[in-house]
């Protein structure tokens, strides 16, 4: 079956990202297709490569990035929510005149239409939030 996942919260503050990651892994292990994982609201903070959690803590961004690489996942960070919260890719940084970007490998920034499309194209949409 074709599934999509919506993540509404950032890492560490709330369990939503952990739950979404474990759900996505389990769905892939069962042979389902993950059409897209969409990061919205504070969920966009999952997509910065500048997080440095303590060594004995899990690194959610790296886990998402690794899962993306293994399964060619489509990890989409909402552009409007990302701009509010300082998540930029190279193009956006240049366009907004910022001196750097922080998007993590495997994530891409795109519009909210990608979330609606995920709802249309997927058999199920599963929401993780607060």
């Amino acid at each position: 079956m074709k599934l999509s996942v919506l993540v509404n919260e950032g890492p560490y503050q709330h369990q939503a990202s952990d739950s979404a990651l474990l759900f996505t892994k389990a769905a892939l292990e069962k042979g389902h297709e993950i059409f897209r994982v969409f990061f919205y609201h504070d969920g966009v903070n999952n997509g910065t490569r500048f997080t440095v959690p303590p060594q004995d803590d899990r690194n959610l961004q790296e886990s998402w990035t690794a899962l993306q690489a293994e399964h060619e996942l489509d990890l989409v960070v909402c552009i409007a929510a990302a701009q509010r919260r300082g998540i930029l890719d190279e193009n956006e940084a240049e366009r907004q005149g910022k001196d750097g970007n922080n998007i993590a490998p495997g994530f891409r920034i795109s519009g909210l239409g990608q979330l609606v499309e995920a709802g249309i194209e997927s058999d199920r949409l599963v929401v993780f939030g607060d």
């Binding site: 919205y40 609201h41 929510a81 519009g111 909210l112 239409g113 979330l115 609606v116 249309i120």
Partner: peptide, 13 residues
């Protein structure tokens, strides 16, 4: 607010 933003985008679909 951000829910409303999705709602507006969804109108185009």
């Amino acid at each position: 607010l951000e829910s409303l933003e999705v709602v507006l985008i969804s109108a185009a679909f």
